[in-house]
């Protein structure tokens, strides 16, 4: 039984990070119907920027661990958001009227570009966050040791998800985003500046991805320029699993994917766990073609 609960927390920790990245995927998809394949790379850049800021500013000498992380998070958030807006401006906006898949290819091109520019700037070697950044506190839940930072990561994902959901559902700007998601033309007629809405989406989505990158850097320590691709694919899977375009869906999908992987590895085979996760995804989609929480909408005709 302890084994089961241990694997449960393992799965949730991994799933929390998938969920956080998946939120960014889902935001962009919801409004633009674009699979932003460069999202994983923005996540990776977030991890690199966090490390650069941390070492360049020497923050750890002046502030408490949580102060450092909070300040870093704000800075990474802002920088990756700027990058996201630039990406949208340069690579996606000119393609808004074009076929959906044209933008997908542009996103793939941007992804290759980001990966290689990071490799050229930082080198191909692994980079490592300082080890003493976070106190390695362990809390005991029902007698089981759980590192505090895992709980914090999970908590951070939940807080961001709830915050985002409230923002989208309850505020005026959020309503504008939802309107643009449903019908850009009609939204424009209602006086909504759709370009600004899309820019905003490209602030929020990449910013969340960047923060996720920072968290991965702090938690696992080791980062490299190819990490965005692997996490990006997992997060995309999670977003689809939950129903892409749906914010709670991204959360559910992320956590579920983490759990499936953990339990597949624990009780079946570690080497086959990813294959098993994809099998579950395919089965779920056969039964529910728009994911777990996705709405059944007819394709626009």
């Amino acid at each position: 039984m302890e084994f089961f609960f241990q694997q449960l927390t393992n799965g949730l920790a991994v799933g929390g990070i998938y969920a956080l990245i998946a939120l960014g995927y889902t935001m962009v998809y919801g409004v633009l119907k674009l699979i932003n394949f460069a999202h994983g790379d923005l996540f990776m850049i977030g991890a690199y920027l966090g490390l650069t800021l941390l070492t360049a500013l020497g923050l750890a000498d002046h502030l408490s661990p949580f102060g450092v992380i909070a300040l870093l998070a704000v800075m990474v958030l802002a920088l990756v958001a700027i990058l996201g807006v630039v990406l949208e401006r340069v690579a996606y906006r000119p393609l808004r009227q074009a076929h959906r898949l044209s933008a997908v290819v542009s996103a793939l091109g941007a992804s290759i570009f980001f990966q290689n520019i990071v490799m050229l700037i930082y080198g191909a070697k692994f980079h490592v966050y300082p080890h003493d950044l976070m106190p390695r506190t362990v809390v005991h839940i029902f007698g089981m040791p759980v590192p505090l930072i895992r709980i914090l990561i999970l908590l951070a994902s939940v807080v961001m998800m709830v915050g985002l959901y409230t923002f989208i559902q309850r505020t005026k700007v959020g309503t504008a985003i939802r309107a643009a998601a449903i019908d850009q033309g009609a939204a424009r007629l209602m006086g909504i500046n759709v370009d600004r809405v899309i820019a905003l989406v490209f602030v929020i989505g990449p910013a969340l991805g960047g923060v996720a990158g920072l968290m991965v850097g702090i938690y696992y320590g080791q980062i490299n320029f190819t990490m965005g691709w692997i996490y990006g694919l997992k997060a995309f899977t999670a977003a689809i699993l939950g129903g892409i375009g749906n914010i709670p869906g991204a959360m559910v999908g992320g956590l579920l994917l983490g759990l499936i992987e953990a339990f597949a590895a624990a009780y079946l085979s570690i080497a086959w766990k990813d294959a098993f996760a994809f099998c579950v995804l395919i089965l779920i989609l056969i039964v529910r073609p728009t994911g777990l929480l996705g709405e059944r909408v007819a394709e626009k005709v």
């Binding site: 074009a98 076929h99 044209s102 542009s106 091109g109 570009f113």
Partner: peptide, 22 residues
């Protein structure tokens, strides 16, 4: 050399922008 894939990425984006239908 090491920048070859970087150039490739830029070309991909540029191609799509200038010829969105291929």
């Amino acid at each position: 050399a090491t920048a070859r894939m970087l150039v490739f990425g830029v070309v991909m984006v540029a191609m799509m922008i200038f010829r969105p239908e291929g």
